[in-house]
């Protein structure tokens, strides 16, 4: 199924504070400054919503033969599509956004919680950077900080791997120069396990956000 909107090769990262340090709104402001210190030009806002769904049963004793967790992702910059991830089944599905209406009518799953990732995006040569906060839609408190690096001309993950890493290292240097306590960290899913090819698509981005969503949830449960 071909995507209409241009998909850039992307790495979804997050801010890992040093031991004992907290992630605050100021951390995000400092990260915006670090991008601007590299001459990044702010180009706009972005928002991504990730949602966790559980099987819908009025009576918990009723077991339904279906996946116990369904995760969804919607991108504000590509609103015509919706993505589902089934982690246990190692599957990423792309569909028109109307799939949400169909899933609602089927009443097999109900939304348990949603996380909103939102912030500003910047252009820096061929790179596009995003930095933003992650908050649960029901609560305003910060669950984490997401950073995303997109690279436009190439769409092969293997071809851009080294270039991306070099760019992240450069960004880390700019951050360290501001004496921030922490580092940029990557949770890269095994795309091949999810039958995703080396050619980058929106499904790759959706899977990365789902991994980050799950990571932030696990971190907040641990805290």
């Amino acid at each position: 199924m071909g995507s209409q909107s241009v998909c850039l090769d992307s790495r979804v990262l997050h801010w890992q504070p040093s031991a004992g340090a907290q992630v605050t709104s100021q951390t995000l402001v400092d990260l915006f400054r670090s991008i601007e210190s590299m001459n990044g030009v702010r180009t706009g806002r972005w928002q991504i919503t990730a949602a966790q769904h559980r099987p819908f049963t009025r009576d918990q004793a009723m077991a339904i033969d279906c996946a116990k967790e369904l995760l969804g992702v919607a991108f504000s910059e590509f609103a015509s599509k919706h993505y589902f991830v089934l982690r246990a089944e190692r599957m990423v599905v792309e569909a028109d956004s109307s799939i949400q209406a169909i899933m609602e009518k089927l009443q097999v799953y109900r939304n348990r919680l949603s996380m909103v990732f939102e912030g500003f995006q910047y252009q820096l040569g061929d790179f596009q950077l995003k930095a933003g906060r992650a908050v649960l839609s029901q609560a305003e408190n910060l669950r984490g900080i997401v950073l995303e690096v997109e690279y436009s001309p190439v769409s092969s993950i293997e071809k851009t791997r080294q270039m991306m890493q070099e760019f992240v290292d450069l960004w880390q240097e700019a951050i360290s120069a501001q004496s921030m306590s922490g580092r940029i960290s990557l949770l890269e899913p095994n795309f091949a396990e999810y039958a995703l090819s080396d050619t980058y698509t929106w499904q790759h981005t959706a899977l990365q956000y789902i991994f980050l969503f799950a990571y932030f949830l696990s971190q907040s449960q641990r805290a």
Binding site: M1, V93, E94
Partner: peptide, 8 residues
């Protein structure tokens, strides 16, 4: 209600 989907 219709929705195009990926081949999986």
């Amino acid at each position: 209600v219709e929705s195009k989907m990926s081949n999986n």
